[in-house]
Design a protein around this nucleic acid. Structure first.
Lengths: 254, 254
DNA sequence: CAGTGGTCTAGACCACTCA
DNA sequence: GAGTGGTCTAGACCACTGC
């Protein structure tokens, strides 16, 4: 037959929608500009709102859009480059680091963390919560787990206000042999989402850092970064520090 | 009034569903076991299929589930730890690295890449495509961009089969000053998705590596890793290499 | 209060895998 | 061809923001 198989693999509508929207974003919109609302956009493209939303969700995941309930959808600025190490041989909480301590409790760590620390699953560890801000917005939250055995000199009677500083101070007295990092995709738990100004379940990059001392894991930090707004940079080697503020975005051909 | 505000913040159904499913996964299912189909699950929980799917999607994103069209939904194994550097001062394609070269073309790089390389937007660069496998499945694809200026000794007449090896060979003759990495969230383009055995749009971790030589960026690699199955590890410092094969998963309390 | 994005429903059809 | 997940629709209501 003469059928030339023009479109045997019709791509999904939301996928095509995405490319149309990306083109529009690149050519007709400025950063911070507000898009028409979802109902209007869906009508304009002749699709159901759910389909339009599927496209918007992916674009938000890719850091191209920012949506806020009750407000609207805006064009997002390029992702920020956030340095996550190596820490050049220093403990967290060293003077001048990018984190702000917001509290500290003593409680059992999650099973996965206790596993890495080598502590018992129900053993209480110092848990310091910290927040990292850049450009006026919170980009990450962190839980730093420090077993009691790693800070033997810590006094027993501490006011809540003194707890976190004391743990960090004791930590700095320990010799740090090195550290180790892993990055994976996660979704924000309710508590983290709140501090990151996102909804629960939002995509986050989870950075797990192991701090070694005396051949053991002396502390573990689990940091969750907003995946929509952050690009994590690992400044290995003594190479130049270019901050890459490209005018263009990822726009590879399919 | 005596109303004690029992549930002023009703969490979404899909969110609650997720926690129920995670508990079930942890207690009643084995890795690789196949779940009931979506229509049955939705009926069992008394929700619409779309709502059930919203929960499954997040669990798949978190690497807890694996869904395959025409087959079913299975319980995923823990994420693989994949080492992504630092490269200990060696170029890509060194003997013994984890990648398999699948082709090489000479074409204009995406704008974002040309920006980093410092080449003209329409300047053709050598583009080597590679694939990384672990445990019998493809976990990442990579495009390595090498400007002509970085491999001046490359002969002009190359068969397609010789192209990639020749580029890598020339590269190895260049002195490598250091490298640099950034990680961000992306979604798989059609071509990458195919090689990763995922659907287009699947969540991926994009690792951008800059290779420095002579004070310039001599090459750039853009690698996309399956976000559902991979945990990227950065083995900084000479610290011990623990491969962390925890029996327990992330299970932090809300 | 009007307008926004977030959640949810109850269907339908399609693309794919495998027996 | 039966059964699976993937896409899509046309509604509805809710939670939140800001005027």
């Amino acid at each position: 037959m003469g059928t030339t198989q023009l479109e045997n693999v019709p791509e999904p509508k939301y996928w095509h929608l995405k490319t149309v929207l990306v083109d529009a974003l690149d050519s007709e919109f400025e950063v911070g500009e507000i898009l028409p609302n979802e109902r209007d956009l869906a009508a304009r493209f002749g699709v159901a709102r759910a389909t339009l939303r599927q496209a918007l969700e992916q674009l938000e995941l890719e850091g191209r859009l920012q949506r806020r309930r009750g407000v609207g959808t805006t064009v997002a600025p390029p992702r920020m480059g956030v340095s996550v190490g190596p820490s050049s041989g220093s403990w967290p909480g060293a003077t001048g680091d990018a984190w702000r301590t917001v509290g500290c409790v003593e409680a059992a760590a999650p099973a996965a963390v206790a596993d890495v620390l080598g502590t018992d699953a129900d053993e209480a560890v110092h848990t310091v919560r910290r927040v990292r801000s850049m450009g006026g917005q919170s980009v990450a939250t962190e839980l730093l787990y420090v077993p009691r055995a790693s800070v033997p000199g810590l006094p027993g009677d501490l006011t809540p206000a003194d707890h976190a500083p004391a743990v960090l101070r004791e930590l700095h007295a320990v010799e740090l042999d090195g550290d180790d990092r892993a990055v994976e995709l996660g979704s924000a738990r309710a508590e983290d989402a709140k501090q990151l100004d996102r909804l629960p379940g939002a995509a986050v990059l989870v950075v797990t850092t192991r701090y070694f001392s005396g051949g053991r894991v002396a502390a573990v930090a689990v940091a969750t970064y907003r995946a929509d707004t952050c690009r994590l940079t690992f400044g290995d080697s003594g190479a130049m520090e270019i901050t890459h503020h490209g005018q263009e975005r990822h726009a590879a051909a399919s």
